[in-house]
Design a protein around this nucleic acid. Sequence first.
DNA 1: TAGGAAAACGCAAAAGTGTTGCGTTAATTA
DNA 2: TAATTAACGCAACACTTTTGCGTTTTCCTA
Lengths: 146, 146
Amino acid sequence: MKKHKEILSRFGINKTQFRIDLLSLFFDCKSALTIHEIFERFNKKINKVTIYRALKSFEQKGLIHQVPDKNNLKKYSLCNLDTCSPDLHNHQHGHFICYSCDQTFCLDDSTVKILKTSSGHIVKNYNLILEGYCTDCNSSQTISQN
Amino acid sequence: MKKHKEILSRFGINKTQFRIDLLSLFFDCKSALTIHEIFERFNKKINKVTIYRALKSFEQKGLIHQVPDKNNLKKYSLCNLDTCSPDLHNHQHGHFICYSCDQTFCLDDSTVKILKTSSGHIVKNYNLILEGYCTDCNSSQTISQN
DNA sequence: TAGGAAAACGCAAAAGTGTTGCGTTAATTA
DNA sequence: TAATTAACGCAACACTTTTGCGTTTTCCTA
Ligand SMILES: [Mn+2]
Ligand SMILES: [Mn+2]
Ligand SMILES: [Zn+2]
Ligand SMILES: [Zn+2]
């Protein structure tokens, strides 16, 4: 799509076919992606090292950001392209991790509010991780657990 | 120390010299520990597999809990031993990660409050990650960023 | 639009993190 | 003290991520 090429240009990333498709995938995906999931989405046709390097580049340029994951895997999700730029990531938002399907979702700003902070530390950014059962998993099964 | 042995007994963990010392280390440490840091603290005299297994055991028995880390390493910190027990971890508290020294600190409950949550997801647990400059790093240098 | 510079790519190898199997040693329980 | 159980060290393995290097593609500018 034209839009994706323009974005890559704007963020100073060469427009190779793979990187166009990768950005497109991030736009399509509502939950965060692991390297493995990306590899699968490309039918294992693309070298994993290429994926790693593209992700690192995207992250440095402010296109995507890492999201937390229970299994210590790196997951990535699209940044707000209006507020993020190279080396200036600005996402003070929460993430929701589903116990059941293991997906991680970005939550928009309005979902949660941090009330106050008081300690000797200077807070520059925050990330609230909520865990539980996502909308889909919740509606498709009954959970009886605390 | 006598106290540490008693705690190990109470949580059903054998009192080997290493595990006594490891618990002692967690009590001494104000920030979360990685396997590597523990290895160093024991002067590389203890096998890393032993550390991994002790950490897993401690976590399962409710002595320690994992804390988030920017680099996707596993870090561990002491639980509130009054509220945590085998398979019933109860720590809804925040963590602070320092941009500068990379340490992770547990924040006590009063430091931050979550105001509200509204989405289709069912929240069972949360973990707030604050990022910035810790007390020590802040006082020892001037930061000019954002 | 041709040609040189820079970025991205694939492949192989290495580094880093965490786990598993197994025989031995140490701690617990009776 | 003897039997049972847990912890330990070592080696090997699995998995994730990084690095080196030569080749290919994209970019930029003459
Ligand atoms: Mn996000
Ligand atoms: Mn904690
Ligand atoms: Zn789910
Ligand atoms: Zn610090």
